[in-house]
């Protein structure tokens, strides 16, 4: 794993973004771009990242950012990637999309691009709701979380996009969170070095949406991993390995309540929903452990 001191000092996301204080999606972007370097184009569907760039003619980025319609990011990246390769360019094409733009409205374009073997990296930063429009539920919102369209807490479970993506049998797939920046950085590097489609799913705690203080977002990300709510792993050509921070967590998990109680969005969550969440964590961990051991 890379050492913190070895992560490049260059910034491609300047300090003038209009993101909320404590936004870990923008923190993720900083590491992504440090790993990708300047020969990179970001393709961004409608999401918080469309806003945090600032207002024309300004931009907070020092790489080109192509903004595109909400449902369309992966299709746009398909065209861009083919075009670059047709003229012999090795430019990184990275989709940086929210969970809504990935698991809901964008899933069709994503599936198509993965199936066609498009050479690109798709990063879904998951703040578990529609941040841009003020925190409505998405398919990625966990059960029990209050959003503005689930004022009583969401009753459906979080859509498992990782298994949907896995069904496309792409060369590289991983999960990450900027609370573990070295792990994130390495995974982006690996993804970009792997030809064909790569997909990284990043958990991005969001202060206003999760109702946490601005200085707590990294701590909450760590707690997600420690409780097993978020599992860090990567799958290279079908081989799954669980990443170091989650290995530790799997040996001794922190109680789920410690993660939930840090966040205002889970206020008043019922015992039965907590149990359901707990069970889905256990199932997920067991499934991943089995897969890593080659038992499936």
């Amino acid at each position: 794993m890379i050492r913190m001191a070895e992560i490049p000092k260059e910034e491609y996301l300047e300090k003038c973004t209009t993101a909320c204080a404590g936004c870990t999606s923008s923190l993720t972007l900083r590491y992504v771009l440090k790993a990708a370097g300047p020969d990179t184009v970001l393709v961004v569907p409608a999401c918080c990242t469309s806003i945090l760039q600032g207002t024309y003619p300004n931009t907070a980025f020092s790489v080109p950012v192509y903004n595109i319609a909400f449902a369309a990011a992966a299709a746009c990246a398909s065209g861009m990637s083919e075009a670059f390769s047709s003229i012999g360019k090795k430019t990184n094409v990275i989709v940086y999309a929210g969970d809504g733009g990935t698991v809901d409205i964008g899933i069709q374009a994503l599936s198509g691009a993965l199936e066609r073997g498009t050479d690109f990296l798709y990063i879904c930063y998951d703040n578990e709701a529609y941040g841009n429009t003020g925190m409505q539920r998405s398919g990625a919102t966990p059960m029990g979380a209050r959003t503005t369209t689930t004022p009583g807490g969401k009753t459906d479970a979080k859509k498992d996009i990782d298994r949907i993506v896995a069904a496309h049998n792409i060369p590289y797939q991983a999960t990450a969170t900027p609370a573990y920046p070295k792990d994130l950085f390495d995974k982006v590097k690996t993804a970009l070095a792997t030809p064909g489609p790569s997909f990284i799913h990043v958990l991005a705690p969001c202060p206003p949406g999760w109702r946490i203080a601005s200085d707590m977002s990294v701590a909450v990300g760590k707690m997600a991993v420690k409780t097993g709510s978020w599992v860090l792993w990567e799958r290279k050509y079908g081989e799954l390995s669980i990443s170091a921070p989650s290995k530790g967590a799997m040996k001794k998990r922190a109680p789920l309540r410690e993660y939930l109680s840090l966040q205002g969005r889970f206020k008043g969550i019922s015992e039965s929903v907590v149990n359901e969440l707990e069970q889905s964590i256990e199932k997920n961990l067991a499934r991943l452990a089995k897969e890593e051991a080659g038992e499936c």
Binding site: C20, P207, S214
Partner: peptide
């Protein structure tokens, strides 16, 4: 309404 975020 501009494209404001918390704190702007």
């Amino acid at each position: 309404y501009g494209a404001e975020r918390r704190g702007a």
